[in-house]
Amino acid sequence: MWQDISTAPLEQYLAVATIDKEVHANIFPCILTNDGWLNAETMKQLEIAPTHWRKWPAMTYFCCCG
């Protein structure tokens, strides 16, 4: 469920979106820092102003060889 951006926690992997009439969600995790929003993969500042957030889905990795 999308939550208002004003309630986003610091220093956690989050999915962010800009929601107007439609949801425009980023396809990469983001992190909110004291300096603003960063792309969690590149650590570069976001060029958008997100309006909503939700937890980034947890990923589970399986190994076939050990």
Rank of each mutant, 00 (worst) to 15 (best):
M1W: 09
M1H: 12
M1C: 09
W2M: 07
W2V: 06
W2D: 01
Q3L: 15
Q3F: 14
Q3V: 00
Q3N: 15
D4N: 13
D4F: 02
I5W: 02
I5K: 03
I5A: 05
S6T: 15
T7H: 11
T7V: 08
T7M: 09
A8F: 04
A8T: 08
A8H: 06
A8L: 08
P9V: 07
P9Y: 07
P9Q: 03
P9G: 06
E11M: 14
E11F: 10
Q12A: 10
Y13H: 12
Y13K: 12
A15F: 00
A15W: 01
A15D: 11
A15P: 00
V16N: 01
V16W: 03
V16M: 03
A17D: 04
A17Q: 07
A17P: 06
A17K: 10
T18Q: 13
T18F: 05
T18L: 10
T18M: 12
T18N: 12
I19L: 11
D20S: 14
D20F: 10
D20Y: 11
D20Q: 11
D20A: 13
K21P: 00
K21C: 07
K21V: 10
E22M: 08
V23L: 10
V23R: 06
H24A: 14
H24C: 12
H24E: 09
H24Y: 14
N26P: 00
N26V: 15
I27A: 14
I27K: 11
I27H: 10
F28D: 05
P29S: 02
P29E: 06
P29D: 05
P29I: 08
P29R: 04
P29Q: 04
P29A: 11
C30P: 02
C30M: 04
L32C: 03
T33I: 02
T33H: 09
N34Y: 01
N34T: 13
D35W: 00
W37Y: 06
W37D: 00
W37F: 04
W37P: 12
W37E: 00
L38R: 12
N39E: 09
N39K: 01
N39R: 01
N39Q: 07
N39G: 10
A40D: 09
A40V: 10
E41M: 15
E41L: 15
M43L: 15
M43Q: 10
K44D: 10
Q45N: 02
Q45M: 12
Q45K: 12
Q45V: 14
Q45S: 11
Q45C: 03
L46N: 05
L46A: 05
E47V: 09
E47W: 00
E47I: 06
E47L: 12
E47D: 12
I48A: 08
I48K: 05
I48G: 00
A49T: 15
A49P: 00
P50N: 06
P50S: 09
P50V: 11
T51P: 05
T51H: 04
H52A: 07
H52N: 13
H52D: 08
W53E: 01
W53L: 05
R54G: 00
R54H: 05
R54T: 14
R54I: 11
R54Q: 15
K55W: 07
W56I: 05
A58H: 12
A58E: 15
M59K: 15
M59C: 06
M59N: 07
M59H: 06
M59G: 00
T60N: 06
T60W: 03
Y61S: 09
Y61T: 10
F62T: 08
C63F: 10
C63Q: 08
C64I: 03
C65K: 08
C65R: 11
